[in-house]
Design a binder for these strands. Structure first.
Lengths: 346, 346
DNA sequence: ATGAAAGCGCTAACAG
DNA sequence: CTGTTAGCGCTTTCAT
């Protein structure tokens, strides 16, 4: 079929072992020999056979990225950061979608498939309740998670509590007191981020001495449509909120839409703040707490590579900073003098 | 390390060859033997070693997806369709980003890396001018392309000429005659889709007996910002257009924004139509020609698998239908009675 | 610094 | 229907 290491060895008049060492940059090779081998390999257009190398060495040189969604902003953006690092490190990236709740039943479990196939796993924001998550972790190989935490597994996330506090405090600083929240779902097994963001909201409200009105909580299921419905529900309350904190930008987009549908002006009649820093947030003039999403992927990939290299590398979790970006969707509460708000005006 | 095929063979009292046949579903295995082997393999928690299997068989069981972007709507959506099919077919998906024009120089070329690593390649909308494209095709392995055509390579695309005609005709039917176009770039090596969509626009205009005014052409570089700038440029013309065809939804989003910035109402003062069927189009109330993007990925993946299976499978290109979805961003030209417009009201 | 040799775990003829 | 026998192309001791 193709050129093998033996062809190179023969052409160079050395053994295959030497070629192997020379090409992989291992020590104990005469530099003259090394460059000669390199040149011959290049001339012959030799490329190593990954299968053979993997079989002999026991390393696959690949890592799997497991994600519940591919075509969603957060996930594809994380993925791009991951790919960036892995390409650089010359590691193959195997993409696997774990499937959302609609179709995951049809799909065979991914964990067994990964067993002898990859050296490590990167998990993007899989719901903690997903049974596949446990299986993946139990594989016992180097693993790193993004936007999700689990005991004993290194992960990289933002400080969701702080992010939610930042968003909520911004509304409070603007003089709002009737503040609603568009949460994910009324589930009893909330997503890590969901749980923490709700907590941050509550903390900020409490510190400001504002009571959280359970009537002003609504669920948007992290989708645009959901956010729209949730905001509509809030607006039809007897005493609707003057400001709303949406746990994600996509839900905030829906909220903005609902506002317009009701003839209300975002940032004037009702303020809306989200979390994420979605691409479209700028274009929809949405105030939001920005998280460096691609960077999350990069950090997690780096951490995983470190784990794989050192072997005993201390499973090390990271928390990345967020920042509030103020745009037109938030404004002072009517009839109030706002106190100075943190964050930068975009 | 792990359980090997020999362990299974010994436990079952057969040879490794029989285990191999039994587990892979090959013929000429007694069904009793097969099920016994299967049970034992399951009990032992045996998983095949892909490296060994690949080395021995010469097939890698993986395909590479090469894309210029990961975190963009079109690309990630295609990717999700591809992943869907490959997961189903139990083929590994290796994701490689070819890098955009900004950073591709830093990255080592991908073609050599793929050489003995995958059985086939799926290329998503890489610019035809990219030198890496030739290298990939010259690898001579089963290849299929999405949103891009090249001589001799099977591809799946929409009929971009027809899509553009559909969009343009819609504006014409609404009574518009001063129709602008937001194109990609003034490059001399346009993207396939870019070229065809421009052609479709010109065709529709000509058939309607409307002259294309070169002053009403502007470039948006397929980005939101670009679209915004392009629309702004059009609006500052001495005789601005009453309607604009944007070659992509993202550019149309920018155009809508520019309109609002100028105090103009989309669909009333100026009509805007795009192409893509981007997720956000519905939420921004944008009239657009919808293409089934994930489906494009699925079809291409299926076609590639067929190519790999049969070997001699006729490289078969596919063209997928689009449809106009009318929303609020387009409306009748002022002082005109529109003729009935094709397409469905959303 | 280099070579010889023994696998890595599986598949694929070829017999039987 | 099943077993035997060679490898697939590389890495890795262990010598030298």
């Amino acid at each position: 079929m193709g050129i093998t290491i033996r062809d190179v060895a023969e052409a160079a008049g050395v053994s295959t072992a030497t070629v192997s060492r020379a090409l992989r940059g291992l020590p104990n090779v005469d530099e003259g020999t090394r460059s000669r081998v390199q040149k011959i390999a290049a001339d012959l257009d030799y490329v190593i056979s990954p299968s053979a190398s993997r079989l002999a060495s026991g390393r696959t040189g690949s890592i799997a990225v497991v994600t519940p969604y591919i075509a969603r902003w957060f996930f594809s953006t994380v993925l791009s950061g991951v790919e960036d690092v892995l390409q650089e490190a010359d590691i193959d990236l195997l993409l696997t979608c774990i499937g959302d709740h609609n179709n995951q039943l049809n799909r065979s479990p991914v964990a067994p498939r990964l067993r002898r196939r990859v050296d490590g796993i990167l998990i993007i924001a899989v719901p903690p309740a997903d049974p596949q998550l446990r299986e993946l972790i139990d594989l016992g190989m180097p693993t790193s998670m993004i936007g999700l935490t689990a005991a004993g597994v290194p992960s990289v996330t933002i400080d969701d509590v702080a992010a939610a506090r930042l968003a909520t405090q911004h509304l409070i600083n603007l003089g709002h007191t009737r503040i609603g929240v568009i949460s994910g779902s009324p589930s009893d097994a909330p997503f890590t981020a969901e749980f923490d963001r709700e907590a941050g909201f509550a903390q900020a409200m409490n510190s400001a001495g504002i009571e959280v009105d359970p009537m002003l909580e609504s669920y948007g299921y992290f989708s645009i449509e959901g956010g729209e419905a949730a905001m509509t529900a809030l607006l039809t309350q007897p005493k609707p909120p003057t400001a709303v904190f949406a746990l994600s930008d996509e839900m905030a987009f829906g909220a903005l839409r609902a506002l317009r549908a009701h003839g209300l002006r975002p940032g004037v009649d009702v303020s809306v703040v989200g979390v994420d820093g979605h691409d479209m947030a700028e274009h929809l003039d949405l105030t939001t707490v920005v998280q460096p999403v691609a960077e999350l992927g990069r950090i997690a990939a780096d951490s995983l590579l470190a784990q794989m290299r050192e072997g005993g590398e201390q499973p090390h979790s990271a928390r990345v900073d967020t920042k509030l970006v103020v745009r037109g969707s938030t404004g002072p509460a009517l009839g109030t003098t706002p106190s100075p708000s943190s964050g930068s005006r975009a």
